[in-house]
Design a protein around this nucleic acid. Sequence first.
DNA 1: AGGGCCCATCGCA
DNA 2: TGCGATGGGCCCT
Length: 295
Amino acid sequence: MTINQPFYRDVTPQGGDYETVSRVIELVTEDYRSQPGLEEIARRLGQSPTQLQKTFTRWAGLSPKAFLQAVTLDHAKRLIALEGLPLLEASLELGLSGPGRLHDLFVTHEAMSPGEWKSKGEGLLIRYGFHSSPFGLALVMATDRGLAGLAFADGDEEACFRDMADRWPNAHYIRDQEATAPYAARVFDPAAWNGDQPLRVVLIGTDFQVRVWESLLKIPLGRAVTYSDIACDIGQPTASRAVGAAVGRNPISFVVPCHRALGKSGALTGYHWGLTRKRAMLGWEAARANGILPE
DNA sequence: AGGGCCCATCGCA
DNA sequence: TGCGATGGGCCCT
């Protein structure tokens, strides 16, 4: 944590900040019984409380205290309790085939044809690159039809790439930072979320998976639904378990907001890129969702 | 076969 | 009440 020295201000502060934030989340969730205070946490991270305070407000837009509050079970329950199902139905105004106001990011999406899916990416050209993000180093993948993959590296870029590339093993991959940079810049900057030019997204998966991911796209920022809500939304109310599996296979993390799917009890249950990251995303979003913030 | 599920029950404080 | 453990049903890969 020497990067927070005054002399070399980190040029990618968000990336560095995430390390601190994730460690705090881990500390707090590990022994949530003892409820360590700001002092205690800072001490264990080898930082001063004021330093920590700064990092948090810069990263989350919230004080550590408020942030941690936003990540409790209690808050999670509130996110899903407000309405649940109607939430999904109401926000779908334009139908899924045309460009719609899915996701706060304004996303148009198309699904791969069944043939394209079965060929496992045969003939598909995928450009990829790594970029720093508020949630750590991100792997971005894009075809000429739009964003196709988004994952997080956690120190092992090779493993991260494999994880994604194995999903479409027959595709052709080219590392191309320049091609993917605009996607990264836009996706993680709420100020760049607008409808002028919707973000193009390609969903590559089975028919069932695509329907689940479409459903996820309808959940607004700062809200959450349960797996069974989604099952109902796609017209298969008894398929909640299969929904869970499909949510977990979502290739475009964050953009397709699989972190907004929670267990019925409000428990976070699982996340392909780590529960800590799921918590971080929900907390980060809480700060940006007006009106639903605790007090 | 085996999941990022869910519900009903039961036992224990 | 409340929380953990358990068992059975569910339905996609």
